[in-house]
């Protein structure tokens, strides 16, 4: 009887350890996140969309990372897309932008219950070869098993040494609004 109890206890402890390990290692990801950016001036509004954003989030630790290919931003006007790649972000030289950071309060998010969470994400955004600290509010929405995330924030092109030629200075704003959307995280 005592031996059976010991065997049962060992099995229970092992299963708890395995369970804890699995929870700790839960990684959520997407390859189809969206980033839209908006430049608004009196003369013109410019926007572009990238639908192939990579994001990995480890809820237990709060670690969150993004990667995006700069040539993946699609503009309505061909000339704007060419200028963006060739002159502004120099995407041949700097093909990717990345973000590595932490989501505050991530470990207290219950992924099983339908709910909305307001969180803060802080980290380092690397673009055009320059790294800067970025902080933004974000929303995590969990509904019927779908985990969705959204964030809006603004960056200054000059902070990333992205130069706007004087000839189009009145058409392109230095302040760019970014809208990040993860429609649905998947388990890795």
């Amino acid at each position: 009887m005592k031996i059976k109890h010991i065997q049962y206890s060992i099995c229970l402890i092992l299963s708890l350890c395995i369970s804890a390990t699995v929870r700790t290692q839960t990684k959520l990801f997407t390859k189809s996140g969206t980033i839209q950016f908006f430049s608004k001036t009196k003369l013109e509004n410019i926007e572009a969309t990238n639908n192939k954003v990579l994001c990995v989030w480890i809820p237990n630790s709060g670690d969150i990372e993004f990667a995006v290919l700069m040539k993946g931003f699609v503009f309505k006007k061909a000339l704007m897309q060419e200028h963006f790649n060739d002159e502004y972000v120099e995407s041949d030289r700097y093909p990717k932008a990345t973000f590595k950071g932490k989501m505050e309060g991530s470990s207290s998010i219950s992924l099983d219950a339908d709910r909305m969470y307001n969180v803060k994400v802080k980290g380092i955004l690397n673009m055009h070869g320059i790294s800067n600290e970025v902080s933004t509010n974000a929303v995590i929405r969990i509904s019927q098993g779908v985990i969705r995330a959204e964030a809006n924030f603004t960056i200054s092109l000059s902070d990333y040494k992205i130069k706007i030629p004087s000839i189009v200075a009145t058409n392109v704003s230095n302040q760019i609004s970014l809208q990040v959307t993860i429609p649905a995280f998947q388990s890795l």
Partner: peptide, 11 residues
């Protein structure tokens, strides 16, 4: 071809 993340990306 827009580059390489997890996959090679074409749009």
């Amino acid at each position: 071809c827009t580059g390489y993340l997890v996959d090679v990306e074409l749009n």
